[in-house]
Amino acid sequence: MSQQPLLKVDNLTRRFDVSKPWLNRMIEREPKQILTAVNQVSFEVEKGKSFALVGESGSGKSTIAKMVVNLLNPSSGHIYFDGQELSQAKGAAFKSLRRRVQMIFQDPFASLNPRWRVGDIIAEPIYAFGLESDKLKVQKTVERLLSTVGLTGRDRYKFPHEFSGGQRQRIAIARALSANPEFLVCDEPTSALDVSVQAQILNLMQDLQDEFNLTYLFISHDMSVVKHMADTIGVLYLGGLVEVNDSQQLFNQPVHPYTRMLLDAIPDHEMTGRRRTPVTGEIPNPINPPSGCPFHPRCQYANDRCKQEVPRSKAVMNSTVACFAAEEGRF
């Protein structure tokens, strides 16, 4: 038996009401419209590891991230952190769970309050979680954190607009670290950055993982970033997890037809000349998803069963996939 996972997500579902206002609906005689952004997603993340969720727009990856950090409540399903259920925790236990799970946001230009000095930004979690109240000690901590992320202590007097995108993301990371977290949810942390800066940030995140024994939940649409950072990868399509596998294994032997398509869609920037099947079709409207397996209209292996039944995740072919074709060996 392996140790208990640090994060366990069980049958997580989130629906959004995207209907028009009540009056318009009554006049136009339209029913309520419900968008299922996340549909019965389950996965586990072990301590000290990196788990990545990849998917295209509308796959629900950011919604999952928000539920894990408790910025959004699940419609159903459970999230356990270190064995405790997030939604059941109260008072001090809840506060401590909150502290242990922190987040790094996508846009370093929006994630730092433009009116605050960097020192105050980084110190905010320290005061909010009551980790330290002595001003001088907080200042020392802030300076230490700034140098941890590759900036200097004097930078705490500056405002966010005085920094480049990469430096801002470093500040955001320092802020997340100031809460002494064990688990970091990283929502597209480098998608707003240039590649050479992205490399700096990814390297920094790897260093921090080793130094502080952090566990990462990585959210990204960029397969190459995910491959570089994650131990395990979960592929999302229209709110559902279609395949979960070890990073190496997933790239070497993708099983689910969507995973295969996604890998084939990545431009070959190294010009290795790997063989690829051309991509076809587009992501359907998530408000009105296809029946059965949501991928069936684009899938060359789809049959009648795929059109009617929704596949559940099963261990097949050294992977965990939700696909009837894989189950039945129809490839």
Binding site: G166, A199, Q200, H228, F251
Partner: peptide, 19 residues
């Protein structure tokens, strides 16, 4: 060198210092 590779596993990305 700073683009993560799909073809092979690299421990660390090449990083250009500064911006």
């Amino acid at each position: 060198g700073s683009i993560p590779s799909l073809a092979h596993q690299v421990e660390r990305l090449v990083q250009i210092p500064g911006s």
